[in-house]
Design a protein around this nucleic acid. Structure first.
Ligand SMILES: [Mn+2]
Ligand SMILES: [Mn+2]
Ligand SMILES: [Zn+2]
Ligand SMILES: [Zn+2]
Lengths: 145, 145
DNA sequence: TTATATTTGCAACATAATTGCATTAAAATG
DNA sequence: CATTTTAATGCAATTATGTTGCAAATATAA
């Protein structure tokens, strides 16, 4: 396995962002998780390694550069996930379905599930689609049975 | 045209809610709009007719009774719209698409556009679907042309 | 008219997010 | 390597959204 930090550093440079500790740490955390990560969780994990404001600014910069994308859960809480690929400062390609588990509250990027095209009333011009499914994730429905 | 206030009063009674000024006013405001109404806007329009907390509680009660439904816009702001029908304290039937205009920021309930069923990965149990489309609403795309 | 059950208002608190500004640190330059 | 430049951070203050407990008010039932 290649050095992960080196990969992150390249990612930052490629996007014209300086290699700083808070940025590397955010990438480290996000990449180590199987679901999207909420702002409050990030804030807690970062602890005093970085100021709250810095975290907000790091997340905003990453989102603008197409490194991560934001998903709001059913409570309106911001969650962040690393973009699979093909995303850039110019456009995000994250039009996959997101699954918000009612039980564990995790948000999964269902990268394989595309949002079906939609027929809307005359006059409306659809730019983006955002579909959040709620219910039980695979892991939680296992436990219930 | 039948007396609107009388209709609202019946609606409250039917749901075991007392006929109070803040509740009637919220119904009045929501029913007079062609799109969903944001909490901040409601708060502003209500002014000192009702306390902020009362507004929150009115909205919560209405939502629980199936009188209104909540839609979060792309910024996570809560918006409320009157339920067309068939909604009750037991379940909401608002699985229609919502359209969030990038220009005027209005949220339209596209009651005629149903959310298509979805094939999700094994194990996931979908309970609800929530689809928000963004772009230009009919009125705004007119103006652009 | 009185009793009771619900609703409201107020104060206090919690959390998420933003802004301005001084300080620090990364990277570019020589 | 030292210095300059530019970007990023930390801190303090502020705004916005939402919640809770409790006393006072009021809608409705009795
Ligand atoms: Mn995603
Ligand atoms: Mn709706
Ligand atoms: Zn789960
Ligand atoms: Zn519009």
């Amino acid at each position: 396995m290649e050095n992960k930090t080196a990969r992150f550093e390249k990612l930052l440079v490629k996007n014209g962002l300086k290699r700083t500790a808070p940025r590397l740490q955010v990438l480290e955390i996000l990449s180590g998780r199987d679901s999207a990560t909420s702002q409050p969780y990030l804030e807690q994990v970062m602890g005093k390694n970085a100021d709250r404001v810095t975290l907000y600014r790091v997340l905003q910069a990453f989102e603008e550069k197409g490194i991560i994308h934001k998903v709001l859960d059913q409570q309106g809480t911001a969650n962040y996930a690393i973009c699979s690929d093909g995303c850039s400062a110019h456009e995000h390609h994250d039009e996959h379905v997101h699954f918000n588990c009612d039980n564990c509250h995790k948000i999964y990027c269902l990268d394989t599930v595309k949002i079906p095209a939609l027929k809307v009333p005359a006059g409306f011009k659809v730019e983006h689609l955002n579909l959040i499914a709620t219910g039980l994730c695979a892991s939680c429905s296992d436990k219930v049975n």
